[in-house]
Design a protein around this nucleic acid. Structure first.
Lengths: 321, 321
DNA sequence: TTGTAGGCGTTATCAC
DNA sequence: GTGATAACGCCTACAA
């Protein structure tokens, strides 16, 4: 490994002069600086990140934590984050692995964006207490070092339920997310509120886990209990796809016997037959917003919690009664 | 930040004893060790990654470089990599941003997996020359510090073309990948070879970029030139989807007027009507293999280049002539 | 304008 | 078994 020492030796100056020159400190002469830069270049010098981070206590790297990589919309989300961060001189890494939770206290990363319910709120609170800056996208967490950028779950869920009711549906199923999920809880709450306003609506809850399997399981239950047309609100599209697949296989007519609406508007929903109704929001904007907030937080600015607005995407998977 | 110094002070021992205890060195007494560990715990001690990396010159982190995050199959690929790496005590980060190319020479990561043609081969060669260990998934690069884990592009492309010819197609289009793409080049080469064996097959080449737009553009050209049924081999599914969309919008009958086959078997291909024929391979295995090879490379073992096998997925998007 | 020296938190080599 | 002490590569007062 080639260090500033090597450059100093070759240039016949001291290491501090090299350091100054490399960092553009005006104290050093133009010509000395030029000579040093040239030698550094020739030697293919690359500053050691560990040493620099150790000294400056800043890495200029932001970590994002996701539940798993396979979510269908992470691509756009990450793109949104990346653009904003890069613009501010930060690099983004997607973290995974057992040790990665330690990277904040280890000072490997300057801040973190969390969309991963396997990261416990207590753990996050501890990090915040220690002065680390965080943005959470999947829970509420009140702490001066933590900012929230959340979806407007309640609006989305209300929109979906109102759509179903408008279409004349009175028998509803809701396929939920996993136990601890904040998004799921919020959506459920709004559903109950909205449903409560129409006394003739019956709503059955089915436990899900936001994955395709849950959708399939739910479909099986719904098929078993089938007596008359019903509408199903899957709290995310992934489950809606699983549900769709199983129903299609069982020769159910979607949008006629069983009506489906999802949440997230992933690409796949455009291609099902009929098109899946869902709730849309800009993933890119969501990511960008999270990054912006984190940068401000790190810079010591005070920031308000942000909310991402959602809209309804109609689809023939929900027909009239 | 709390360091071994703080622990040493509190425990009334020297920092070296603390370091030994923390690292489970048997030289230190059980009881001293226990006491130190207890204090470390109480103080919420977390070893500083930068300092450790600086000293040991090892970070136990592997970086993977992708063209962009939005590829439809990266989820599974990364999952495959992650599982293998975690098992060997490595953490995986997905790298992005302008500085991230420097992380190898900066010793922030111990090795890299590259599937990103924006990373030039010269750059990679330089890194390899400096002793860094790499696995490439999107090019051939012969260097003792570099291992290749490539798709069997030629087999895949041959499979696809033979399928079309078997089905009676004689008029073919090929929508290629971007200029520099190794995968595209390999596939094209195999296509030419296979096509060359049947003298009556006509094959027209359309330049693409592996994105949806390219597929749409290709569709427009094909529609313009349409006189009789033709078969289109899109060198990836993303373009095939773009092509499909545009053709559907223009009321073409797919699998009858225009026949389509893609490459990659992304999830979406199952949902088009009719189902898109494509070439399949295990993304998870591909990723796992790349990780295994990199770990061996880092451990100093000699490794052979690996090849990932592919299979044909038939679909009604290709009908008989 | 340049050099000296101390320190960031760890590990590791010595003595004791 | 434990404790000084010297690195690792970089930054930055302070001194010259």
């Amino acid at each position: 490994m080639i260090s500033i020492k090597d450059i100093a030796k070759k240039a016949g100056v001291s290491i501090s002069t090299v350091s100054y020159a490399l960092n553009g400190n005006p104290k050093v002469t133009e010509e000395t600086s030029a000579r040093i830069l040239k030698i550094a270049n020739e030697l293919n010098y690359v500053p050691n990140a560990a040493a620099r981070t150790l000294k400056t206590r800043v890495s200029k790297i932001i970590g994002v934590y996701l539940t798993d990589f396979s979510g269908a919309f992470y691509g756009e989300l990450l793109q949104g984050m990346k653009e904003v961060l890069n613009q501010s001189g930060y690099d983004l890494i997607v973290c995974s692995g057992s040790y990665s939770h330690q990277w904040l206290p280890q000072r490997m990363i300057d801040g973190a964006i969390v969309l991963d319910h396997s990261f416990s709120s207590e753990e996050l609170m501890q990090l915040a207490d220690r002065g680390h800056k965080l943005v959470v996208m999947d829970r509420e967490l009140n702490h001066p070092n933590v900012n929230q950028v959340l979806l407007d779950n309640k609006a989305g869920a209300s929109l979906a339920v109102e759509y179903l009711i408008d279409k004349g549906h009175r028998k509803l199923y809701v396929v939920t997310g996993p136990q601890g999920s904040y998004d799921s809880k919020q959506r459920l709450q709004a559903i109950k509120q909205t449903v409560g306003r129409s006394s003739d609506v019956v709503c059955t809850q089915i436990e899900g886990k936001f994955d395709k399997d849950s959708g399939e399981l739910a479909a099986k239950q719904i098929i078993r209990e089938y007596t008359e047309p019903a509408a199903v609100f899957c709290l995310n599209d992934e489950m809606a796809i699983g549900l769709y697949n199983t129903l299609v296989k069982a020769d159910f007519r979607i949008g006629e016997q069983i009506h489906i609406i999802g949440f997230d508007n992933i690409e796949l929903t455009e291609y099902t037959q009929p098109r899946l109704a869902t709730i849309d929001y800009s993933k890119r904007k969501w990511g960008a917003l999270a990054s912006e907030q984190l940068i401000k937080l790190i810079a010591g600015e005070t920031v308000e919690h942000e909310r991402v607005y959602v809209t309804l995407v109609a689809g023939e998977s929900v027909g009239d009664v």
